[in-house]
Write a protein that binds this DNA or RNA. Sequence first.
DNA 1: CACGCATATAACCTGTCTGGCATACTCAGG
DNA 2: CCTGAGTATGCCAGACAGGTTATATGCGTG
Lengths: 109, 109
Amino acid sequence: MASTLEVLAEPSRRRILDLLLSGERPVGDLVEGSAMSQPSVSKHLRVLREAGLVEVRQDAQRRIYRVRPEPLRDLDEWLAPYRRLWASRLGALEQHLEAMPDDDPDLRR
Amino acid sequence: MASTLEVLAEPSRRRILDLLLSGERPVGDLVEGSAMSQPSVSKHLRVLREAGLVEVRQDAQRRIYRVRPEPLRDLDEWLAPYRRLWASRLGALEQHLEAMPDDDPDLRR
DNA sequence: CACGCATATAACCTGTCTGGCATACTCAGG
DNA sequence: CCTGAGTATGCCAGACAGGTTATATGCGTG
């Protein structure tokens, strides 16, 4: 099984998660919202499911998916030591004066 | 350029970042600490650099790398709405009683 | 200025991932 | 049962990422 970060690396999967953020949704909705073929969406859902990032509920022939945020907690914890870094760096900036070049504005997520 | 999450998906790169967490290091140290070939390390460093996750300083023929946590802040922000989810879910648990199966203990990061 | 050290880049190979299409499965209704 | 809606799976092709080895580059020193 893939690590949470590997699973989240896929933009389509983040898209699906973001769609589920507003509440549980059947697969059909996700297909519309993500502009991919239904099989692709199903495959991504499988990966997300195996990573514990979503869970399913069955409603007749529909499968309703919803977010399962627990794995993201681990990510949050991994982030913790770095969080300290960027906190302390605010202070360090003063010593650097303004000699630093602008941060790259093209950063994604 | 790759998104922060794509860059972090690589275990070797996380390893490098974690090594840099204890302070700036020349490439040689990273090669030792990560048990990979020097060219591989250099490649990963390039990716990390282009993603803004590390920065370099030159010291004679050595390049000293250090963490640049800013992109992780964006990741932290992306995480925010999900954080709310797992917070609210603590409350929801009460309604589920104890009927839920144990969470998969095999989750990675 | 020739050499050695530290690091970066090039070229190549291989495995893996993703998307698409076709097809199988499952469920409710008639 | 037979059918259709909704979803999952198998299989394939193309693209890409990571490792390795060989080689180039930059810097200080004798």
